[in-house]
Design a protein around this nucleic acid. Sequence first.
DNA 1: TTGTAAGCGTTATCAG
DNA 2: CTGATAACGCTTACAA
Lengths: 329, 329
Amino acid sequence: MHQIAKLAGVSLGTVSHVINETASVREPLRQRVMEAVEKLGYQPNQLSRGLRLNRTNMIGMIIPDITNPFFPGVVRGVEDVAYKSSYRLVLCNTDNDPAKEATYLSDLKSFLPAGLLIIPSVDSSLTSEESGPPVVCVDRRPRGWKGDIVTVANEDGGYKAARYLIEMGHRQIGVISGPSHLTNAGDRLRGFMRALAEANVPIGPEYIQEALFDRTSGYSSALRLLHLLPCPTAIFAANDLMAMGALSAVRESRLACPADVSIISFDGLDITELTDPALTAVYQPGYQLGYTAARLLLDRMNGLKDRPQEVVLKTELRIRNSVARMNVS
Amino acid sequence: MHQIAKLAGVSLGTVSHVINETASVREPLRQRVMEAVEKLGYQPNQLSRGLRLNRTNMIGMIIPDITNPFFPGVVRGVEDVAYKSSYRLVLCNTDNDPAKEATYLSDLKSFLPAGLLIIPSVDSSLTSEESGPPVVCVDRRPRGWKGDIVTVANEDGGYKAARYLIEMGHRQIGVISGPSHLTNAGDRLRGFMRALAEANVPIGPEYIQEALFDRTSGYSSALRLLHLLPCPTAIFAANDLMAMGALSAVRESRLACPADVSIISFDGLDITELTDPALTAVYQPGYQLGYTAARLLLDRMNGLKDRPQEVVLKTELRIRNSVARMNVS
DNA sequence: TTGTAAGCGTTATCAG
DNA sequence: CTGATAACGCTTACAA
């Protein structure tokens, strides 16, 4: 910036003024400055800029597992609205590791982002403080979180899954749930159990396995389920990754899906329509989730002062081929 | 920091010394300072810190499409080594949009990252300059790039795919290539063509479709291929996403894979072993790619001054069920 | 309309 | 061993 000022024969202040259009500068001067900017390929230093302004143009986002195809979908939703508003989205992946999440969160904050989007995997380290950038939680609710949040109707989604299984005649049902400390996992399970209870379908505790929302833990949970007697005729996996693991387990047990055991899932990622069989699932709108959260965050960044909002998006049952009709005995 | 100094009754300089262990401070003082740090929940401002030090503790990474499951794998590889060395990885997704890539690149740079990892989708905007943070390219080589780069043996991988198809008796072959301006797409195609030429298997230009490395373009390219006469008995898709699109196309054309048309792919993501049929593919080690690139970047950041390195990882054919043996007529 | 200078939160140099 | 103080690159009153 010094160089520009020198090259254009003006002062630092003036350079800043023409760059930020913060004061009307006479045309010839403006020209000279812009030329200098071009010639030197000047890029403003965001660090000093942010330091001065007390905020940068970046939106930070923390996701638990970049490897789970559900999250990239929500990231795309965020990206689309953030970029259009000329904010830059920077992503941090925590691997579901609470320590990583805490570190990334505080590190991100110390970069003074304009806003923060968090898919929390842990309760701590997140308190709706007044100071600092606006934060909106996405997909999961940390215990005691009182700020903005956008989620999907997990309880209702779980309910729908169970209803469908029951309608298809299943009475011996296994569940692969997500980590119990995650609200979305808990809600899905609760909805599922509610439907079973309403229909008087019993389910023993050993038929409810807790896994980690990833493929390998879904696989081993399914294996445990398949070794139970009586063997479940249907399995509800609380997300697609675990359902895919379950599918592998079924195959390796020399069973057929859905002939021997049906699988119903949660997420409805489009890749699961290519599996064998295509997975019936409760679809949740990942892109919309991100899109909505980002819009809300932008509103906050622009000074919206309402009381905290809670947006809940709908889910929808997508029937494909992984659930067979049972003859009720 | 002011507050800490005041609370501990010392000067700013001393606080800094204590925090960074940049001078041995007498124990009682040190104690007082640390207590103050704890009590105030002090987090150093990375902006000012970076401004002063002329570099931050973040590693920036630019990926072209977070939605393509191949990239999250390489991100994980990077993340693992970066985090262990207490660097923070921040990700930017460009959607294969050259403008976005340029913007993110220059924005990232102006945050003075300690290093930069780029999976380039466009040639421009990347010049191996002396100034600025070390940069290593991953997976694809921009035209004229003379700096560090780690890729996989794409040409050889393409060659392997064609060899296998030929060995299985296929003579009428279609190709769904990636965007021709991307080196990895070009290399894969070149290797593939070389094997065909060596085996005297002809292929008309209309049997080579260029698509965008995503599912929908893979789908429509496959449709075009399937309408040709004679219809290809095998299709090589230059990545898994396009192969999955091709699979959909085959199904919707009421053809069977591999009975009517075989598919061989490139990537070998683990989700493609659950498709129907499981996809035979040239596997490329995504995690290793990221891991290796990150190691190299760390070396550069630590002052390694060698001439630019070029690391090429091996690929490997993974035979599953999507390629049938043909009776050579 | 333009220039000057203070200050954002750190670190580093250099006296005391 | 500790404390002033300048400097990092930029924005913004305020003065000219």
